[in-house]
Simulated scan of single mutants.
Amino acid sequence: MTTEVTFGVEEEYLLLDEKSGQASPRAARVRAAADHQPGLGRHEVDDELLQALVEVATPVCSELDEIAGHLERFRRAVAEAARLAGCRMAATGGAPLSSQPVPVTRKQRYRDMRADAGRLVDEQLICGMHIHVAVPDRSAGATALGLLRPWLPVIVALGANSPFWESHDTGFASWRTVVFGRWPVSGPPPFIADGAVYEERVEALLATGVIPDRKQIYWHARLSETYPTLEVRAPDVQLDVESAVTLAGLVRALVVTALRGGRRGHRPLDPPASILDAAGWHAARHGLSADLVDPRHGTPASAADVVSALTDHVSGSLKELGDHDRVTAGLERLLDGGTGAERQRRALAQGGPEGLLDVIAPDPAGGPGR
């Protein structure tokens, strides 16, 4: 396995009214302002399903420092563009305050989704982090997907950053995971042994007529239909860049470990779908603040022990990629300082709604979340 395995990160951001903190449908204005920001190329900021959301995507990268550099410039420049458009850019997995319905972006695909799914589309004020890792081909990628699948609930727990919804504490660390799980094809992917089986599963789903196309396969991890990558979609967007970098490095190592295991014919852990669903729900509920389901045994263990098991599982790949020290230090910070969800709750308790907004939507000149 070469030590240069390319990868990239997509981040979604929520736009909030600068005074009320409610979702603000100003994506078109933010995108127009972003095109004039010195830190951004033209059209690097894209739209999303609802007009209070925008998305960015790094170029193909080889090193964590590259990922960090791109995410830092995106956040700084998009936050400034949002300020110029009269709103705030928030790095949170879900809209924390009650909001009026936000219109869908003016694309036929999005209009069709709104007509088909109604209230579910209205509630898609959620933001994820998607990590794309290069794979040699779709067959190798599908085999790797089968091998890494049992660890996805741990990624959900580590990436939890959406505790609030409609001005209430949901009691969940990742409410985004719950909201997204309402789509017909979502949650943990089924066990898939190879590329042929993957295509059979996808074609069978399309044949039902329930989803119109492959873009509505919203599993926590899937093969990209656009790039030669395995795409892990489990984490919420992160409060800060270094947490995002930690998850990106961990996921890349997890994919590299799975690719190696596939070539060597390793027998995968294959928990029943019901166990994996339960583990994912529990991870979304608690984040790192309670036990997690240990994927090796299907039994509860402390979050620290399960994260340690995952680190051990990918340790060889982390070292090979040169990411071991940075990723393990980042995981220790998440275990010691809490996920984004825990940090959001602390901010609200200490500073009220304005303190919460300062954490999830910091001033572009610098401050919390930088």
Score class of each variant (00 low, 15 high):
residue 119 R to Q: 09
residue 291 D to E: 14
residue 355 G to R: 02
residue 341 A to K: 01
residue 58 T to R: 01
residue 55 E to V: 02
residue 182 R to T: 12
residue 339 T to V: 04
residue 288 L to P: 09
residue 125 L to P: 03
residue 40 L to N: 07
residue 319 K to S: 13
residue 135 V to C: 05
residue 229 T to I: 05
residue 43 H to G: 00
residue 251 V to M: 10
residue 62 S to E: 09
residue 131 I to F: 05
residue 256 V to S: 01
residue 15 L to V: 06
residue 255 V to E: 06
residue 117 A to W: 15
residue 70 H to P: 03
residue 228 P to R: 01
residue 368 P to A: 14
residue 143 T to D: 05
residue 344 Q to K: 04
residue 130 H to V: 04
residue 145 L to W: 08
residue 340 G to Q: 03
residue 118 G to C: 05
residue 298 G to A: 04
residue 31 R to V: 13
residue 291 D to Q: 11
residue 286 H to R: 10
residue 38 P to H: 07
residue 264 R to Q: 14
residue 112 D to H: 10
residue 340 G to Y: 01
residue 155 I to Q: 04
residue 16 L to P: 10
residue 187 G to I: 01
residue 120 L to W: 15
residue 169 D to S: 13
residue 258 A to I: 15
residue 167 S to Q: 08
residue 348 L to S: 11
residue 169 D to M: 12
residue 26 R to H: 07
residue 127 C to E: 01
residue 46 D to N: 09
residue 168 H to R: 15
residue 255 V to I: 07
residue 143 T to F: 02
residue 267 R to G: 07
residue 128 G to F: 00
residue 65 D to M: 07
residue 135 V to Y: 03
residue 346 R to W: 06
residue 252 R to D: 13
residue 94 G to F: 01
residue 221 A to D: 12
residue 300 P to Y: 04
residue 288 L to H: 05
residue 116 D to Q: 15
residue 369 G to R: 13
residue 74 F to N: 04
residue 205 L to V: 14
residue 248 A to H: 02
residue 7 F to I: 11
residue 320 E to V: 04
residue 89 M to W: 00
residue 82 A to Y: 06
residue 103 P to Q: 10
residue 94 G to Q: 12
residue 148 L to P: 06
residue 221 A to W: 15
residue 102 V to E: 06
residue 197 V to A: 15
residue 24 S to A: 15
residue 310 L to G: 02
residue 44 E to V: 11
residue 172 F to T: 01
residue 232 V to L: 10
residue 111 R to D: 12
residue 76 R to N: 02
residue 365 A to G: 15
residue 104 V to T: 15
residue 367 G to C: 10
